[in-house]
Every structure is written in structure tokens, then in C-alpha cells.
């Protein structure tokens, strides 16, 4: 190294450098350090407590990993055995996609009018705003699978219950997202319509709606993507789609069928993702939501 001499000079002058700058830039901060340690310690402590409380043990983990390894071995290669079986799975996959599409669209159609009540800049009534928001929160708090169980009691087993379950869970999410989009809308077009003599309804229709429609469309597409994933599992409780076959094949330990089904899901989700991100890009450009 040729810089040795220079480096020695630099470090020889280190005290001078310290004097030139504020001393506290270099001073260790014991309080900050202790806070970090306390936070990390608390997080790790709860983690260890949880592992003990939930009965984790090395024997269980290693035994389970061994069995998991042999299951993965049995899964390869993915194979539905007969064409007829593959056709059945294909139909179930189509059903899954149909459930996701209809559930998302119905939720959007129902949530759109509701979101006007939940948006503070559209709905002047504090009370109505509060109750709409809390109602949407409650709907959102119930998981899709629970909704599926409830709807099965109403329309019976089958994909229709799945559509209604996805719809119910998404009404809450859409209501929240749509109303937030409305609250984030620029006020100026609204003021413009009002100044030109428009009524409140016209201000909403021509001032706010054109601004939020692209955002809403892209959110619907995004949820369609995520609902394709949800729709693959609601069959587990009997609400149609590919999940029914998946849970059946896992329970009967037909591992090659299981891996074939998982592969189908992965491919379908990847295709839907690709299409939907294309469309979203076309609607709102590169801006992410």
C-alpha cells in the first residue's frame, strides 16, 4: 500500500479532527443503545416464551422435518394418474377463477355506493360516516373462510357459497379503500363544479368520481389477483373450487395429486398476475398502489 504514510498522518491528526467537529457526533449514546437492546430483548423474549408455550421441541421439529422430507419425495413427479382426473381438476380450477371474478365484481358493485357514505369529504354527517366505517371494519374482521361457513348454511355447499364469501369479505376492504381514495381526491375540481353552479351530487359525479375511477379499477384488479389465491382455499370448508380436491387428496395422502394441484394453482395465479398487472399498468401507468 502506498497510502500508509498518508493514513498515519490522518490518524495522527484524529484528535484535531475531533476537536474541529462537535464532540457529541462521536460520543457513544448509551441511552439509545439500551433502548435498542431493550426492544430486541423484549421481542426475542416473547418469541422464546411463544415457542415454549406452543410446545415447540427439537424432537417434534426434526421428526416433522423428516416426515415432511419423505412427503416431498412422494410428491415428485406431479401426476394426476388419469386424464379424467386431470379434467376434473381443470374444471375445479375454472370454478375457482369464476368464484374469484364474480366475488370481486359483486363486492365492488356493492362497496362503491357504500364508500360514498364512508368518505369524509363526500358525506358531511359525522354519525353516518362513523357507523359506515365501523360496519365495514366489522365485515372486514371476519375471515373469508368464516364467511364461507356462514353462507354454506344459507345457499348450501358449492361454489355459489364461495362467491358470496369472497364478496362479503371484500365489501369491507373495498369500502375502506374506495373511501380513502375519495378522501385523497383533489378538492379543486369539486370547487370548480360548485362555483359553476353545480349541486352536491354533480360535484361528486363530475368532481370526484372521474378522479377515483382509475384508482378503484386498479384496486379491483389487485384484489382479483389476491382473491384467486383465496378462492383456491375456500373449497376446504366445502365452498367450491379446487380447494375441495386439494384437501381431499391431502387427507387421503395422494401426494402426487397434491403436487399436481399445487402446480396448477401456481401456474393459474402466475397467469392471472401477469394479465392483471398488464391491465393495471394500462389503467394507471407505472405508479404502484
Amino acid at each position: 500500500m502506498t497510502t500508509n504514510g498518508n493514513a498515519a498522518d490522518l490518524f495522527g491528526d484524529l484528535d484535531a479532527v475531533r476537536r474541529r467537529h462537535h464532540a457529541d457526533h462521536f460520543a457513544p449514546r448509551p441511552l439509545d443503545r439500551m433502548r435498542v437492546l431493550a426492544i430486541v430483548g423484549a421481542l426475542a423474549g416473547v418469541l422464546v416464551y411463544g415457542l415454549v408455550e406452543l410446545e415447540f421441541s427439537f424432537a417434534k421439529i426434526f421428526g416433522g422435518l423428516g416426515r415432511l422430507g419423505s412427503i416431498v419425495g412422494l410428491m415428485l413427479p406431479p401426476d394426476p394418474e388419469t386424464w379424467a382426473k386431470a379434467m376434473v381438476y381443470g374444471k375445479a380450477l375454472a370454478e375457482t377463477l369464476a368464484i374469484a371474478l364474480l366475488g370481486t365484481l359483486l363486492a365492488a358493485v356493492i362497496a362503491f355506493p357504500l364508500s360514498f357514505f364512508a368518505a369524509r369529504n363526500v358525506n358531511a354527517s359525522r354519525v353516518l360516516h362513523f357507523f359506515t366505517r365501523r360496519g365495514l371494519d366489522t365485515i372486514r374482521g371476519v375471515d373469508t373462510l368464516i364467511w364461507a361457513l356462514i353462507w354454506i348454511n344459507v345457499v348450501g355447499l358449492g361454489p355459489f357459497a364461495g362467491v358470496l364469501a369472497i364478496m362479503s369479505a371484500d365489501i369491507g376492504a373495498f369500502g375502506k379503500l374506495f373511501s380513502e381514495a375519495m378522501e385523497a381526491a383533489d378538492r379543486k375540481p369539486v370547487e370548480g363544479v360548485t362555483a359553476a353552479g353545480g349541486s352536491t351530487a354533480e360535484a361528486v359525479r363530475f368532481g370526484i368520481v372521474p378522479q377515483v375511477l382509475p384508482v378503484i379499477a386498479s384496486q379491483i384488479l389487485y384484489y382479483f389477483e389476491s382473491n384467486t389465491r383465496s378462492a383456491t382455499i375456500i373449497g376446504i370448508v366445502g365452498a367450491g373450487g379446487i380447494g375441495l380436491h386439494l384437501s381431499e387428496q391431502i387427507r387421503t395422502l395422494e401426494w402426487q395429486h397434491v403436487s399436481f394441484l399445487i402446480l396448477m394453482i401456481l401456474v393459474a395465479v402466475a397467469i392471472i398476475d401477469r394479465i392483471s398487472s398488464r391491465l393495471r399498468f394500462a389503467i394507471i401507468g407505472p405508479r404502484a398502489i
Binding site: L54, K60, I61, G63, G64, R67, L246, S247, L253, V258
Partner: peptide
């Protein structure tokens, strides 16, 4: 579903 088969029922 798969882990229940390999690790047994329960929170693990």
C-alpha cells in the same frame, strides 16, 4: 394442511 400431516395436530 400438509404440515398437520407431518408435524401432527396442534399449534406447531
Amino acid at each position: 394442511l400438509i404440515f398437520v400431516v407431518s408435524f401432527g395436530l396442534g399449534p406447531v
